[in-house]
């Protein structure tokens, strides 16, 4: 390989322009990728910067005479509603994730592992919610909650948000776990059976540990979708306020910088957790 390159190099010397072109062509994808990643971070950086704004009336423009301040970071719950709405979002996200992950995993196993009458319908039923615009799902849920479920005592609020979030999280869990179950080598389960593991032992000692990363991934996806959802939440929340709804509602009056603090902190926490998980995963692999 190198000999070929060398002999060609001695016979034919490309011009500097050509060489720069070749260098760029080789790295075009990587350069473009880095630029796109930076683009993804622009508003995050903005949010971070404006968490230090020592503003007087509203946190829209940088206060001309004020130097950066740490006061919003020292007292993130200082503005009314920020922490209350955050806690609500975390609670809703946790419950919705737990329920959606359990139900979705069961459905995924049924759809991948068995052939039965209604399997096709099951596949469609779990896929269609993903192809439904959020606004339609929100509108239909609002209709049924107001016109149907309120008669049995279910008022718009915390639990209607949880119910709605489970619906869309469920679809994503099913798709994620299904992919993981499908990609599993069937011989591993055969090997377990061959090694005296009955159906129950095969499931808990082999199948489940191997599918677990997919389930964990699905749970993380669920939580982030639930935590960040605004459109459906806005329809079914009544007077309950989640963090995204709090930000949206306070937009006209001016969003307190504490919201920036919370938003950026969530970002940092999430990134740290993911990196921590990877580091632990790497450390557990003996060299």
């Amino acid at each position: 390989m190198s000999a070929v390159t060398q002999s060609r190099g001695s016979a034919y010397k490309p011009s500097t322009g050509k060489r720069i072109q070749a260098w760029l062509a080789d790295r075009f994808a990587m350069i473009a990728a880095v630029l796109v990643l930076l683009y993804l971070f622009v508003p995050v950086a903005y949010t971070f910067a404006f968490s230090f704004n020592n503003y007087k009336k509203s946190n829209i423009t940088w206060n001309p005479e004020g130097s950066p301040t740490l006061k919003h970071w020292k007292n993130p719950c200082g503005a009314p509603g920020v922490c209350d709405s955050l806690v609500k979002s975390l609670e809703i996200g946790a419950i919705a994730t737990l329920v959606a992950t359990i139900l979705g995993t069961l459905v995924a196993f049924a759809l991948v592992r068995y052939k039965f009458v209604g399997r096709g319908a099951g596949n469609v039923l779990t896929f269609v919610p993903m192809a439904t615009p959020e606004i339609v799902m929100g509108a239909s849920l609002l209709t049924i909650f107001v016109q149907g479920f309120s008669r049995v005592g279910l008022q718009l609020g915390f639990w209607t948000i949880v119910i709605a979030h489970i619906v869309f999280c469920l679809s994503f869990v099913v798709v994620t776990v299904k992919a993981r179950v499908q990609s599993m080598d069937p011989r591993l389960e055969e090997a377990a059976q061959d090694l005296y593991a009955g159906p129950t032992a095969t499931f808990w000692k082999v199948t489940f540990p191997l599918v677990l990363p997919g389930i964990v991934g699905a749970a993380m996806l669920s939580f982030s979708l639930s935590f960040d959802d605004f459109i459906i939440t806005n329809f079914v929340s009544g007077s309950e306020t989640t963090f995204p709804k709090f930000v949206y509602v306070s937009y006209l009056r001016g969003i307190p910088a504490q919201a920036n603090v919370v938003g950026f902190s969530m970002f940092v926490i999430a990134v740290s957790l993911v990196i921590l998980a990877q580091v632990i995963g790497n450390a557990r692999k003996p060299k």
Partner: peptide, 20 residues
Amino acid sequence: SRPYERPVNTVFQSYALFPH
């Protein structure tokens, strides 16, 4: 009888070692 009831063991093609 089922595989786990038999006094028979298999060395699988491509081994099927449990990766976890």
